[in-house]
């Protein structure tokens, strides 16, 4: 384990968090670009999301008459929880001091807190779209969270710890093995990630004009810097799930020391892994049609069943 009183460790963890927050829009744009290329459309420039954010930050905020202070503080809380979540997952360095303070369950809780305020903000103005969006978000969250927690518990039972750094270290230390529990855990986490980040079979991130939208319905009333923070938070959330998936299930390459060479390898490995995952996500979004809203609970039930089978097969088949 890393020395938690080491100043360099703390600085490295902070730098890693800043880097995470900085590249999150780039990852979202990479998925968008891959999708555009697959669909024979002209992709947006690499820096487009940063320009969008700068433009939104420069704009004036227009508030509805009925908006209360909850509406005004919600973007900061949503963004803050996303940054907090980003800081506690192993990104380039596996052993970060933040991981000792906040484990995987805190991560799920942090994301839930952000979602709670997002849903409150959707309800606050009192438009019908916002209310619909909040109601849908909470319905699906209630189904997605148990599945996510099951995956976390499976990993925790495997590594005998809920500390994400320990889990990653455990996978790096033991020989490569074909584990059914990890196979199903990975599938379940992918399904949960798709649902939670509002990607295509569940929600369409590219439209504001659908009756079945979930995320966009809640932030429809936001303008200016509030909207920028909300958009940024959702890009962060996508990056969080992507990094969580690749680093927990395919942790090879992640750096366990502050040595420049291993950090360099970690950056390269992570870039490659995220590029592949983003391309796969774009491919899936191109091939799959958006499902009916009432089919989403079935989709999440599949995720829950997979995570449950993952946990059961860990207990039944890997109990050595």
């Amino acid at each position: 384990m890393a020395d938690y009183l080491n100043l360099a460790g703390w600085l490295a963890a902070l730098a890693q968090t800043v880097l995470f927050v900085a590249i999150a829009p780039l990852f979202a744009n990479w998925v968008k670009r891959a999708k555009c290329t697959l669909q024979n459309r002209r992709p947006p420039p690499w820096l487009q999301p940063y320009r969008d954010l700068r433009r939104l930050f420069g704009k004036e905020v227009v508030l509805a008459h009925t908006a209360s202070h909850v509406f005004r503080i919600a973007p900061y809380i949503v963004f803050g929880t996303a940054v907090l979540a980003a800081s506690i997952i192993p990104f380039i360095l596996a052993e970060i001091p933040f991981a000792a303070m906040a484990d995987a369950i805190v991560l799920v809780g942090t994301l839930a807190l952000g979602r709670f305020f997002l849903a409150l903000a959707g309800l606050d103005v009192g438009t019908s779209f916002g209310g619909m969006g909040s109601s849908r978000e909470m319905t699906f969250a209630a189904l997605a969270e148990p599945a996510m927690l099951m995956v976390v518990f499976t990993l925790a039972m495997l590594a005998s710890s809920t500390n994400l750094s320990t889990v990653v270290g455990f996978f790096l230390e033991q020989p490569l093995a074909l584990r059914p529990s990890l196979l199903f855990g990975l599938l379940a986490l992918l399904l949960v990630g798709i649902a939670e980040t509002g990607r295509i079979p569940v929600d369409n991130p590219a439209t504001h004009l659908e009756l079945t939208m979930i995320h966009e319905a809640m932030i429809l009333e936001y303008t200016g810097r509030h909207l920028a923070l909300m958009e940024y938070a959702s890009q962060l959330k996508l990056a969080i799930y992507a990094v969580l998936t690749v680093n927990l299930f395919l942790p090879w390459g992640i750096s366990r020391t502050l040595d420049p060479a291993s950090v360099g390898i970690a950056v390269l490995a992570l870039t490659a892994k995220l590029a592949v995952l983003g391309a796969l996500l774009a491919l899936a979004e191109t091939l799959v049609a958006k499902m009916r809203l009432f089919r989403v609970p079935t989709f999440l039930a599949v995720a829950f069943t997979l995570s449950l089978i993952g946990m059961l097969s860990f207990i039944m088949l890997e109990g050595h």
Partner: peptide
């Protein structure tokens, strides 16, 4: 728990297939 990782690949494969059959029975049920 490291004992599982030391099993030969074929035994891990057998267990994975057993778990896949369990998934298929859940799928059949649904």
């Amino acid at each position: 728990m490291t004992a599982y990782a030391d099993l030969p690949l074929i035994e891990q494969l057998i267990r994975t297939f057993a778990a896949l059959i369990l998934v298929s029975s859940f799928a059949l049920l649904a």
